[in-house]
Structures are given as C-alpha cells and as structure tokens.
Write a protein that binds this DNA or RNA. Structure first.
Lengths: 214, 214, 214, 214
DNA sequence: AATGAATGAGAATTCATTCAT
DNA sequence: CATGAATGAATTCTCATTCAT
C-alpha cells in the first residue's frame, strides 16, 4: 500500500512538473506557437511521455487552468479565513489575493479564454469540465460570501451577492485583458494595479451609497 | 473617372462580403478551427481570391477587429453628439452604445483577444496596427471626455479621465468574457445586461460619493 | 496588305518588348521567383495580355532562349564575314563575339539550362524546339567552319571540326557557370574574361602542336 | 555509449536513404517537378519524416550536392595519392576520376546548377554553404596542386595553378551540360568521354608548348 | 514507465491560366 | 486587342499523436 501511495505521489509530482514547464513555455512563446515538443523539452521529457499524464493537448491546457483555479480557491479562502475580520478588511484581503493570483500566473486569462472556445472544450473529459466548474464556483462563492457579510453587517447595499462577485471578477479579468491589449497595440505601459485598485474602490464606494440609493 | 470609382466601390464591397463571411465562420467554428477555405466557401469565392483582398490570414482576422472598432467609434460618437446633454444622459447613452456594440458583433472579444497574442500581431502590417491603435484611442477618448465633463459639471469626483475610461472598458469586456466562460463551463444563462448595468451603476455611484471621499 | 504587315510588325514589336521585360525580371529575381505577373508589370501590360503573345510560361522562357540564339547566330556570322581573314583572326573574332553574347544576356545559361530540363521542353511546341535546334546548329557550324579553315590552312591539327566546336562552346558555358557558382558560394570575384581567354589560348596552342603531335 | 553510436549510425543511414531516393526522383522527373511527397514515397517514408532529417526542401537539394562533392573530394585525392606518380600520370588519373564522378551522379550538374540560383542558396543554413564551399575548394586545390607539380617538374608552362584548375573544371562541367542540351534538343547521342578527352588533351598540349610560348 | 522516430492529415499560400467585360 | 479579377490545383511544411522498442 505504501508503495502504491508513493507511486501515486510521484505520478502527481511529475504531472505538476509538466504543468510548470508548460506554463513557462506558454509565457515565452504564447499559446499558438507552443508545441507539445516545446513543453516536453522544457520538462526534460519526451513528447510521448506527456501523453502518459495527459490525454491530449487540450487536457494539458485545461489542467493548467485547473492549477490556477486551485491556487485561486486556496488563496481566496486564505484571504478571509482569519477570524474576526470585518467586511472592509475582507474586501481588502480579497483584492490583495487577486493580485497574488495574477502574479502566480499572469497568463491565466489567456489560459481561461483559450479554454472557453467551444472547440477546446469539446474534447475535454467531463470530469475535467466538472472540476473546472466546481473550482470556479467555489471561488465565486467565497467572493459572494464577503459581499453577503457586508450586507449583513449593514455596510453595503443589498444586491445579489453572486451578481456582485461576477462584477468583481469581470472587472479584474477585463483589466488584465485590457492591459495586454494596450501594451500590444500601443507599446505603452499600463498601470494595472492602480487601475484595478481604483476600479475596486469605486465599486466599493458605489455599494456604500446607502443614503443616496434608497 | 467614374469607372475608377465604381471599381473602387466594388472592391470595397467584396472586401466587406469576405469579412461578413469570415465573421459567420468564426462564430460557427471558433477562430482556431476556421480555415481560409471555410471562409472562402462561405463567401462563395475561391481561397486564392481572399488573398487578393487580405495579405494573409492574420490580416483578415485583424480587419474584422477594425470593422468592430470602426462601428464602436461611430456609435460612441453618436451617443454623445446630441447637444445639450449633461453627464448623466451622456453616461446612460454610452452604456446603451456598449450594448449595441456587443450586439453588432458578440464575437468581438474573441476577436480582440485573438489579436492580442503577440504572435498574431507580429505579422500584421504596421499600417493595420496603427489603424487599430488609432481607432481604439479614439473611442477611449470619447469615453474619457464624458467623465471629464462630469467632473467639470461638478457631478463626479476628480479622477484621471483616461483611467476611468480604462475601467469602464475593462468592466465591459470582462463581463462579456465572463458570460462566455460561465455559459461554456456551467451551461447556465448569464444575465449580461443586468450585470453590466449593475456594475456601471456602482461605478457611477462610487464616483459621486463626494462627501465621503474628500 | 500594308495594314496586315503593319499589324504584324507591331505584334512582333510587342512580343520583343515582353521578352526584354522578362529578361530584366529574370536578372533581378532569378527564374524560380519570377512570376508572370512580375513580367507583365515590368512590361506595363496585364498578365492576360502575355498569353496573347505566348502560349504559356514555358514558351515565353523558350522564346528568350531563341532571342539569345538569334543574337548569337548573327554575331558569330558577323565575326567571320569580313573577307580575307585567316584562321588566327577569325578565332580571335569568335572569342570576342562570345564575350558580346555573354554581355548581351548574362543570364543566357540559366535560360538554356532551364530549358533543358525535360519537364520544360515537354510542353513546348515542336516548332519552337525545331527553331532552337536549328539556331544552335547554325552557330555550332559557324564555329566548326573556322576550325575547318584552320586545318585547311594547315595551321592546326586535323580533328573533327564539330568536336572542336563542342569543346569551344563547352569551355565557354562551363566558365560562365563556374563563375556564377564561385561567386554564389564563396562570395569572391571571378575573372571570367581572363579565365576564358587563358582557356581558349591553351586550346588553340594545343591544336597547333603539329610537330609534337604527329 | 554503444547505443548512442548505433542510433547515430542509423540516423545517418536513413539520411542517406532519403538522399538516394531524392536522387532517383530528380533523375526521373527533374528538379522543379519533384515534390517532397514524391521523394517521401520513393523513400517509403511519410513527408513529415523528411523534415526530421532535412530542414527544408532546399537543404535536401543542397545535401545532394554535398554528397557529390564529398565523393569528388575523396575520388580526386585517391587519384593522386599513389607515391611516385609524375605529372603525366597524375593528370591522366585526374581525368579518369572526373569520369567516375560523372558516373557517380550524372545529375550532379543539374543539382549544382540548381544550387547556384541565389534564391535557393538564400535559405540554406550557413553551415551547409560553408560545407559546400570547403569541399569545392578542397577539390579545386587538389587539381591545382597537380598543375603546380607539372610546373615544378618543368613539364608545363608556368600559369596560375588555380586558374588552370578553374579551366579544367569548367571544361568538364561545360561538356556535361552541353551533352544534356544536345540530347534534349537534337535527340542525338553525344560522345561525352571522347569530347572531354579531346578537350583535356588539347589543354594539356597547350600547356606544354614551352618552345613556342616563352 | 519512458522514449522519440515516424506518421499523415491538414493548413496557408502561391501563381499560371482563364474568361467575362 | 487588352484587361485583371478570379480561379483552384498544387506545394511546402507543421505538429498532435501513436507505437515499437
């Protein structure tokens, strides 16, 4: 049984190595131009070996997304787990967490967007799709829960918490996307963090306008 | 002279026909899986003919983006041209315009995202890149100008108008993106308009919190 | 009838214009990379028009060769036509003529070599092949005749005149070819004229070794 | 270590198999009409496999030339290596060697000619160009050395040995070329060997005319 | 488990040639 | 005669995937 377990662990470890290699290659060459062989070389394995760990290229792509989603899930949970935090603190922590997630894998959005194209999803195993779905929902629920608390604490307006989480997430991904586009087209630096902070702060303030709103 | 002109017009018309066909194909099959031959068939032309109108596949892709950006530019300008509109009205008009833009070409973001990957941009002609850059800036300036007016009218907080336009745009694209993802992964309907409206209204309110902000 | 003739003349003139344009394009871009459209542009005509004057691309290629062969034929005849020339003078004149031919069209060999490939010849009209054959033979006969005279004058050894003409021609074309190759591979200048002169002078001397030979 | 070596050998063997197949195809169909697919079929491999051994079509072409140049280099060296040979014997051996080279690969000149067009060379790797250059020079030096010895032995006139080697080589290639052309155009047999022997003997005699020359 | 050579289906692109105007 | 837009067959090359070792 111990042997079984060790093998299992080693297998998982190798899988992670491949994913890390893939991430590096994608960062370097972009998705379209990255080949299985590139990734294999980066992972110091042969192309064939990759297929022992991933059904096909799309599953490998998708697994990268899972990796990010797992990190996101953990990181977000961590952001709010400390007991005794009020809405203000938790929101601030969430925002910090988003930056960490971005830095964990700046290519995350390319990744997820790539995944979206129905072509790619078509060949994914249902289990993987389910895993992505579950992880996404979990993170979204964490965010929504914070807004819920804000409402319960009477600090912010009552809106559908999930809707607010959607907006929170959209603003974040939209900003990252826009940063990329601007840099690519205009060759200019984009102050991503400042922009996101300003956006989040405006959203937050907008939610607090109880007096004017009612 | 008349002949010259007519030819010119016919050429432009044919170009547009191809772009429309390309849009249809992309919507159907997604970018990656769409081939030049698919588009040619849809346009009822031969593959070779497409190359009389577009230097290569990437330029064809990019031209689709230009098409959308042109529409956006015109639509946004239209949204604020009516004289005597105050900030409130103009912002509302802008938001309506964004929905029109989305409806004009929901695939727009796939498109622009595709464009983003530096690989694709590498082979674009500098003129095309410049055109995309110019059109983007123009629309952003239109949006920024509205925020500027809001500040000048004393209705909203003084923030960098371009930063606000960036946020406005990011929220929009992020929402569209997220809608796609959610539908793809979770198979659920996403109330895009409501979400965007809520987001924009929160941003707007956030900007108006003068009293709390100072 | 006069009209008929004028038309004929104009047609021939246009044909020559096209050939001149083709020659320029080939010199610039090489054979493989030259397209019918390139030639048409250089000739300030449309691609379709070229097909009114040449059955297809191969015939156009071949006609270039004919052009050179015609020039060669005339130039060689001219080299020996002056009455009262002895073998020595005629041989010297022939050699000068070869340089003129080379300068008339340095690409000549590419041309003729290209023609050689059976693929190209397959589609040529029998008339054109016959014309090339006739012109080649004519020039060779001119060269052979000079050697014949040298023998009749007792100045050179008796060898098969045609064989000597073949050698004369081979040395010339081989040198031009080798010049090209050396320049291409080694990037060095090649003293073509000096080399050919030395070669021809050695051949000539070899032919005169009556005493030693017998 | 043994495994490494065996793989290396097998790889080289496969490379040679492909080159042999390519040679057959080129002989059959000529260069222009030979496609990668043709060669792959002849080699009983798939098209993709060829690209594991050759960067692209031009490199495959060029490698054929290298093959011939290697043979030439070895064959020429062999021709003069026997100790105690004087100039007369060495020259005779060189000439025999040239015939062997011709028979080793009659398509050689097509090949080298093809290579000449700068278009083709443009895409060759610098290493390959360098290899071709080096091999060519080596053979030329071997030929030149024989002439040098002839001069040192006082048997032939003092001329630049390299220039004589150029002429030697030009006469050979020119003859082969001319044989092809004559057969193609006139459908007649051409006595290549006799022609070349006559040419070389004339050159040789021309060089020996010390008395007349001085 | 790992390898990596081989596969072969595709994809983008070119260009000689045609033909309606 | 001339045009030049359109054609579409043909070609090179790529790369995810397989499978014998």
């Amino acid at each position: 049984m111990g042997i079984q377990e060790r093998k299992e662990r080693e297998r998982e470890r190798r899988r992670q190595d491949i994913l890390v290699a893939a991430k590096r290659v994608f960062s370097d060459k972009g998705f379209e131009r990255s080949t299985i062989e590139d990734i294999a070389r980066e992972a110091e394995l042969s192309p064939g070996t990759l297929y022992l760990y991933f059904k096909n290229k799309d599953e490998l792509y998708a697994s990268l997304t899972v990796r990010v989603l797992q990190f996101m899930s953990v990181r977000l949970a961590h952001a709010i787990e400390e007991p005794g935090l009020n809405y203000d603190r938790k929101l601030a922590n969430l925002i910090d967490a988003m930056f960490d997630i971005y830095e964990f894998d700046p290519v995350i959005l390319n990744n997820m967007f790539h995944l979206q194209s129905s072509e790619t999803l078509r060949d994914l195993s249902p289990e993987l799709i389910e895993e992505i779905n579950t992880l996404s929902r979990k993170s979204l629920r964490t965010i929504a829960a914070v807004f819920q608390e804000g409402m319960d604490e009477g600090r912010i307006l009552r809106r559908h918490p999930t809707a607010l989480a959607d907006i929170f997430w959209s603003m974040f991904t939209g900003s990252v996307l826009w940063k990329e586009t601007k840099q690519m087209i205009g060759n200019e630096q984009y102050p991503l963090k400042e922009s996101i902070r300003l956006g989040f702060s405006l959203l937050d303030k907008g939610l607090r306008q109880q007096a004017l709103d009612a």
